[in-house]
Design a protein around this nucleic acid. Structure first.
Lengths: 313, 313
DNA sequence: TATATTTGCATAAGCACTTATATAAATACT
DNA sequence: AGTATTTATATAAGTGCTTATGCAAATATA
């Protein structure tokens, strides 16, 4: 017997709180189910930071209508999760400028389909007329408790074209070759050895202990990257390429983040890459993700490379 | 700029929580304004305990739909405030039987007009059609922020016949005399000295350092009680009487609680009363409020008394 | 009848907030 | 310019919940 419900309007405060907690807990489980390390309590701050690119503590406080310590604490949690970074303001030294880290940006991209699905689901169950606030609350509480809300999210997610990162699979081998050849043709030129390596990924990359990852959407590979084992626990990030019609969707950044996470999880000692300073955008991204320039060896493996960058692990 | 509001349905969880907190804080202030030492967070438990007369932790837990520790903690707070008491179950020694203390019952009576007014006010602003839960939330949040909700409560309270406890005022002197004479006529008989004391309250009670309180409703005294100073910091509770047509409204209990609170506030060393064992109901109430029987003096001040009871201070 | 399980409540620690207060930098005042 | 005030953020402690766990009494099971 639910006496809060029976008391009616007088217990509205407690009812609101109870529904809020139920909803938060349910959504928390949804994030978990979709493999996203995120927390519904962080949502308002995270969303606002992403929207604003850069923002300060006080501005966030204004915007979220919570106390300033609450904002500070939430930011700390986001920083701890590696999703957000702080930077001192050059002019006003009291201010700290808050922005998403590359990891945060990638998560923000990845979470979009889920947010869309949640938004649709909430609307589905709450955007209908009712004669009182309490009636709305009762209706939505029922829906969540019955599991209909979670299910609606799942159903909406089925309509979303999900991008996920896959290990190497033979059916993606052609994509690995094509995307990279295309990229080389665009920016440099294709050497015979390139064709050799790209056509025999097992021999040159996988068998020696390397990895090839694919960004897969609708069962189709649309981007790729490789980690070549160069030494015991030392890996080179290479062969990153995205299908021409898929550029601008930040697929490269997602692949990059995946490689960094993978390196950390597997306790790599070294992770580095070779590039060319002509590719300014790429270098910018590498730097943003934390790669730092180091002196390039005289006998670097690529003629076309003039810069080496290392990720601090 | 309220970005939570702009995000819409996605931030529903946070919006619910925010509205809950706003409502709770507002109501908390209302209790304070009406001089009631109560907390909106305690409401569901307090309400349920009052309704059930006796209840156990587990039953409350069931009824309020919160975790069992939350119930235990709330009960502890209520016990601390002196509103609720625990008693071991005679049969099942694990169980603790929860019930209102006399103080709790009195508060429960006193809070009724406010609860009625709050209920009306909530209904006034939330029992109207809206096209979505969020629309209802937005509307109610506006209303609370604008102060309209608090004001509505105040307005509804003006319709309520409020009972409050007053100090002695000359215009109540006749009531003091009448109620007591009426009571004496009903249960005993009126002696000349009774008329003397009751007609000269200043001389016999107030001037020697005693107090006379009145329960006042609509500007009219409907009950009374006196604290006669019998010694340094020793007071006798006496002359309690309620107007005939007002019996059954627990006015005596409210006067009694007021005297106990007054004794505590003013650090009385002793508070006692004389009665007669024929008045079983009265004795029961005294005992319920914590008065304990002691040996009556041979020269007790009243011929009609055969029992003396002391409140442990 | 002895042992295992369940039940009723308490305690501990954590979490997302709150209020109150501290600290340092920027700005206003005289 | 020097001092006072305001502003931006951090820290500390408290609150009302949560989950996890403990403990003793009651009940089920063998």
């Amino acid at each position: 017997m639910d006496s809060l419900k029976l008391i009616g309007e007088l217990s509205l405060g407690s009812r609101l709180k109870r529904l809020s907690e139920l909803l938060m807990k349910t959504i928390s489980k949804v994030y978990q189910d979709y493999g996203l390390d995120f927390d519904p309590y962080l949502f308002p701050a995270f969303h606002k930071i992403a929207e604003s690119k850069t923002i300060t503590n006080t501005e966030l406080c204004d915007s979220l209508q919570t106390s300033q310590p609450a904002v500070t604490q939430t930011i700390n949690k986001l920083v701890q999760k590696g999703l957000v970074q702080l930077e001192a303001d050059a002019i006003d030294k009291r201010k700290k400028i808050i922005s998403l880290t590359p990891k945060g940006s990638v998560l923000h991209i990845q979470v979009q389909p889920l947010w869309r699905s949640m938004d649709k689901s909430v609307k589905e169950f709450t955007q209908k007329p009712a004669n009182s606030l309490l009636e709305h609350i009762n209706q939505f509480e029922e829906v969540i408790k019955a599991g209909d809300f979670s299910q609606a999210i799942t159903e909406h997610m089925e309509q979303e074209t999900l991008l996920y990162i896959s290990e190497f699979k033979p059916e993606y081998a052609q994509a690995f070759y094509d995307f990279n050849i295309d990229w080389l043709e665009t920016y440099f030129y294709v050497e015979d050895f390139d064709r050799e390596v790209l056509s025999k990924p097992h021999q040159y990359i996988l068998d020696p202990g390397g990895h090839i990852f694919f960004a897969v959407e609708n069962g189709e590979a649309i981007g790729t990257v490789a980690l070549m084992k160069r030494d015991e626990n030392a890996y080179e990030l290479t062969k990153m390429a995205v299908r021409g019609d898929q550029r601008g969707k930040k697929i490269g950044q997602q692949l990059m983040q995946h490689c960094i996470d993978f390196a950390k999880e597997n306790k790599f000692d070294q992770l580095y890459l070779y590039s060319n300073t002509l590719l300014e955008n790429a270098i910018y991204i590498y730097r943003k993700f934390g790669f730092e320039e180091v002196k390039i060896e005289a006998n670097s493996p690529y003629v076309r490379s003039n810069i080496k960058m290392v990720y601090p692990l």
